[in-house]
Write a protein that binds this DNA or RNA. Structure first.
Length: 423
RNA sequence: GGAGAGAUGGCAGAGUGGUCGAAUGCGGUAGUCUUGAAAACUAUUGAUCUUCACGGAUCCGGGGGUUCGAAUCCCUCUCUCUCCGCCA
């Protein structure tokens, strides 16, 4: 949620920024500012009425103590009028506030100045391309065939026991999965991230805190009986650990990493790019989350990008980094870098990581603040990134490292798999 | 699933209708002392909204009610804990 004070002081700038998302926000922002003004005015009036009524009550109390019952009773009559007035003003204030909030939650984050305008994936900027795209042998196959040949993943078993999009990993496929999770967690820890193992279900307040609710309600699995949501990413439980907290400025940046399975309904995305591991309802991911001082967030974003690059290099995968355009960026993000790995067998780029700075957008919803040197509370900045999401990493390892003799495990991963080849 | 207890500031924990934004302790911050630190002592220390400012308003789990006045009384919801049962 955007900060009201920001909108008050930067209305034109915000509208200009949001235009990069193809959103015409001028009307809605002016509506917000009008409601805000109205609400504040009502509150000032209300406060005055309440102050008067408080003063009256106090003197009534004193009169009673002095035994001046008649005088006290006379004053009581006055309070009725004030009470009615305050009730009315209170309702007005509440109405204005709700209307204001309802508008405010519809606005996505204002993109950073580096973000270019654009409609979708085609307008993203390629920041860099690293690594060599391997030339595969003649019989090279896509990962779904390799997974089948080497008995690594069964999509059919998943369909049998759960449904489409819930694969079963087995044998070296399952072990590769476990190895990657450990590899990522270890590397993240070495980079300064503390490891967590959070719950895989969260309450509605958490969904709201990180911005999945009310925006993307339909994308999460919901357990009606207990009103819990299956997490779509570890970002949700991890960031929400700090919801409603005022953290010590010296404890910043707070750096967390967590492995969790991720559950996504992917409603409406059937048909395209869903083959094999490309799009799943349940997948594994190791996430990194940063909570930091506003002055440090863009430096941290760069650090996170470098960290993810290092992971991909250790896995010997060719990748490119995209800076997302306004139209392709998530609702809560101010600046997002996507990482794509090239699959030589599918002959296309696969998104494997998304690293974002949310600035105060999430922190404002969550009331995640720090106490500054000025003694006042300020909103923190939050960032997160995948380091990394497994399915497409597995797909690209299988596809890019395949040889006629089998699939070669990258050097850095061997200590974790304890096997060097899948054959 | 059954029974009971509870929810107060960063934490612990008092407070059963007005003088309570709330005792006390711990923690935090600053100072005195010290070569430095510790200890001791002294002072200070909640959040949100609003106002140019002085100030004002709100907040004792959430919501509603009684009352001139509610942390305190009533209703309701949510959550937590304890015991019993079941169980990995």
């Amino acid at each position: 949620m955007l900060e009201l004070t920001y909108l008050r002081n930067n209305a034109a700038k915000a509208a200009k920024g949001l235009a990069k998302r193809n959103i015409n926000a001028e009307t809605i922002i002016s509506d917000i500012l009008r409601l805000d003004e109205q609400r504040r005015q009502t509150q000032t009036e209300l406060d005055a009425v309440l102050a008067e009524s408080n003063a009256l009550s106090k003197s009534i109390g004193q009169l009673f103590q002095q035994g001046k019952v008649e005088e006290a009773n006379a004053m009581k009559a006055k309070t009725g009028e004030l009470k009615e007035k305050s009730k009315e003003l209170h309702n007005q204030e509440e109405q204005a506030r709700h209307a204001l909030d309802n508008l405010l939650v519809t606005l996505p984050n204002v993109p950073n100045e580096k973000v270019v305008a654009g409609n979708g994936a085609d307008d993203n900027e390629v920041v860099s391309t690293v690594g060599e795209i391997p030339t595969l042998h003649a019989d090279a196959k896509p990962h779904w065939d390799l997974a089948d040949d080497y008995k690594l993943i069964s999509f059919d078993l998943g369909v049998k026991i759960t449904g489409a999009g819930f694969p079963v990993y087995m044998g070296k496929g399952a072990r590769l999965q476990r190895a990657l999770i450990n590899f990522f967690l270890e590397e993240n820890q070495k980079a300064g991230y503390e490891e967590f193992l959070p719950p895989h279900f969260v309450n509605a307040a958490s969904g709201y805190g990180t911005g999945q609710l009310p925006d993307k309600e339909g994308q999460m699995y919901h357990m009606q009986e207990d009103d819990l949501y299956a997490i779509p990413t570890a970002e949700v439980p991890i960031t929400n650990m700090y919801r409603d907290e005022i953290v010590d400025v010296n404890s910043l940046p707070i750096q967390c990493t967590a492995y969790t399975p991720c559950f996504r309904r992917e409603a409406g995305s059937y048909g395209k790019d869903v083959r094999g591991l490309n799009r799943l309802h349940q997948f594994d991911k190791v996430e990194i989350v940063n909570i930091c001082h506003p002055d440090k967030s863009y430096q941290l974003l760069d650090d996170m990008v470098k960290h993810v690059e290092m992971l991909l290099q250790k896995l010997e995968l060719p990748y490119r980094i995209l800076r997302l355009c306004g139209g392709d960026m998530g609702f809560t993000s101010a600046l997002t870098y996507d990482f794509e790995v090239y699959s030589a067998a599918q002959e296309k780029w696969l998104e494997v990581s998304s690293v974002s700075n949310f600035e105060t957008f999430q922190a404002n919803r969550m009331k995640l603040r720090y106490k500054g040197d000025d003694g006042k509370t300020h909103l923190c900045h939050t960032l997160n990134g995948s380091a990394l999401a497994l399915p497409r990493i597995v797909a690209s390892i299988l596809e890019n490292h395949q040889t006629p003799e089998g699939i070669r495990i990258p050097e850095a991963l061997i200590p974790y798999t304890s096997f060097e080849w899948i054959s």
